[in-house]
């Protein structure tokens, strides 16, 4: 049966790293895949994709109108009877008709990639070209929308990402959704076992050699080396480098105690649930 596995995450949580792994796994070549050719299927919010399937310009539609049509576009792919993997940063929300924007029928499952919001704040500040306080503000704002495009026309349609906590719960607690959660921190510390689990979840070949090679070819040093050598097309404006540090715990030196407290105040409950706070409420 065909359908879509969503590679879902809040921005800057390891989605691109996972896609680099996936592309290398599927490619199974003898050298790393070019980081500028990571398309496993593109991003759910791609305007070109929506326009082509719909046959008319989403540029002429209001965001609510586009939202209503998105499930239809994804459902259309069921006809191909293939399994596809699409990146998505939207929160799992419902259209005005009460249908999940990703379409229930089109969705085989979602691999949800989760990262400590303290580290997300630092990484997203670099990515969004905002200061850390503004970034934390945005992560706590339910109105946060990507590619809102009040002026001009972005190449993606707008995406509601809600607050960081709501983003996580929207996917993880979505009723009836086949979802597997992996943490960025575990992807780093227990790469082989986490990537193997994720690979099986996505119904992909799980031969040890193949996974091990794909991991090597998508290793942070390799991604960063390629970016330095030839640039990375997904690097946002104003950000110096996309593959910045590739580690966890950067918040320890990078955030002030006030910033840490603010993130915990905003997201403590979800942080605790996923092991980012200890029993006494301190970040780990």
């Amino acid at each position: 049966m065909g359908g879509i596995y969503w590679l879902a995450s809040y921005p800057k949580s390891g989605n691109t790293w996972f896609r680099a792994y996936l592309k290398n796994l599927i490619n199974d070549g003898d050298r790393p895949v070019d980081i500028n050719d990571l398309n496993t299927g593109g991003i759910a919010s791609s305007r070109c994709w929506l326009d082509e399937v719909l046959g008319f310009d989403t540029a002429e539609l209001a965001p609510e109108e586009i939202e209503q049509l998105r499930p239809d576009v994804y459902r259309w792919f069921l006809r191909d009877e293939v399994i596809s993997y699409y990146k998505i940063h939207d929160a799992y929300t419902l259209t005005a008709r009460g249908e999940p924007i990703v379409s229930r029928e089109a969705t085989l499952g979602a691999l949800y990639i989760l990262r400590n919001p303290l580290d997300v704040a630092l990484s997203a500040a670099n990515h969004w070209h905002l200061d850390v306080d503004e970034t934390i503000e945005r992560m706590g704002d339910v109105r946060t929308t990507l590619a809102r495009g009040r002026s001009g026309l972005p190449d993606q349609v707008s995406q509601k990402i809600l607050t960081w906590s709501q983003h996580v719960s929207s996917w993880v607690d979505a009723p009836g959704l086949n979802v597997k959660v992996i943490r960025y921190e575990d992807m780093l510390s227990s790469s082989l076992s986490i990537f193997t689990e994720a690979t099986r979840f996505l119904q992909l070949p799980d031969a040890f050699g193949q996974i091990e090679k794909a991991l090597r070819f998508s290793d942070f040093r390799e991604l960063s080396r390629q970016e330095l050598e030839k640039g990375f097309k997904e690097r946002p404006l104003g950000a110096r480098q996309f593959f910045r540090q590739g580690r966890s715990g950067g918040w320890r030196g990078g955030l002030t105690p006030q910033q840490i407290a603010r993130v915990i105040a905003d997201h403590g409950e979800v942080m605790r649930r996923f092991g980012y706070l200890d029993l006494s409420g301190n970040p780990v």
């Binding site: 399937v53 046959g55 008319f56 049509l69």
Partner: peptide, 19 residues
């Protein structure tokens, strides 16, 4: 049918823009 709202036939084209 070429898309959820798009059909073609010989010399005919059908398009719906919902709403």
């Amino acid at each position: 049918q070429l898309g959820p709202y798009l059909w073609v036939g010989q010399n005919t084209f059908w398009l719906q823009v919902p709403g």
